[in-house]
Amino acid sequence: MTSDTRTRLLEASAQLFREQGYAGTGLKQITAAGEAPWGSLYHFFPGGKEQLGAEAVAHSGGRYLKLFDIVFDGADGDFVRSVRDFFQLSVEALERSGWADGCPIATVALETASTSEPLRHACAEVFVSWQEAIARRLRAAGVPDGRAADLATYVLSAFEGALVLSRTAHDTRALKVTGGIVAETVRAALP
Rank of each mutant, 00 (worst) to 15 (best):
G102I: 12
T5K: 11
G39N: 10
A109R: 05
A183R: 03
D150S: 09
P46R: 04
T7F: 06
Y22V: 11
T31R: 02
R120P: 00
I105W: 02
V80F: 00
A169L: 11
D4W: 14
E55V: 02
C123F: 09
V83F: 01
Q51C: 06
A93M: 04
Q20A: 05
A58K: 05
H43K: 05
L110H: 13
T7Q: 07
E95P: 12
L156M: 15
T2R: 13
E160G: 03
T7I: 10
S116K: 15
L67Q: 14
A149H: 07
L10E: 00
H59S: 01
G21S: 08
E11S: 09
A12W: 04
D76N: 09
A135F: 04
T185P: 01
G24L: 08
S166P: 12
L89S: 10
K176V: 14
R63C: 09
P118Y: 05
G26C: 06
S116M: 09
R139Q: 13
P46W: 07
F45A: 02
E184Y: 14
W38V: 08
L16E: 10
S3L: 15
G24A: 11
V80E: 00
P46A: 02
Q29A: 10
A23S: 14
E111W: 04
Y154N: 14
H59Y: 07
I70M: 15
C103G: 08
H59C: 01
T5V: 14
T25M: 05
D69V: 06
F159C: 07
T168Q: 07
D171R: 04
F68C: 01
T153N: 14
H121G: 14
G98Q: 06
G62K: 12
Q15T: 15
T31M: 06
V182T: 10
R136H: 12
R6V: 00
W38I: 07
G180K: 02
V108T: 07
P191Q: 15
P118A: 05
R84M: 00
A162Y: 07
L151Y: 00
C123N: 08
L190S: 06
V83Q: 00
A54S: 08
T5H: 15
F159S: 05
A158D: 10
R63H: 12
A124T: 07
T153W: 15
E117T: 13
I70V: 14
A106G: 15
R18K: 06
P46Y: 08
P144I: 13
K49D: 02
T185Y: 03
F17V: 01
T172Y: 14
T5W: 15
D4N: 14
G98W: 06
A133R: 02
L163P: 03
A188C: 14
L165N: 15
A75C: 11
I134D: 06
S82W: 00
D145V: 12
E160F: 06
T185R: 06
V83N: 02
A33P: 03
C103K: 02
F44V: 02
E55W: 00
V155N: 07
A36R: 00
Y64F: 12
P46V: 03
G161E: 03
A174W: 09
A33D: 01
L190E: 03
Y42E: 00
V155W: 00
W130A: 06
A158F: 05
L165F: 10
F127M: 05
T168N: 04
H170V: 15
V155D: 07
A135T: 05
A152T: 01
V164M: 11
V91P: 05
R137M: 11
L138Y: 00
E111R: 12
A33Y: 05
F127D: 01
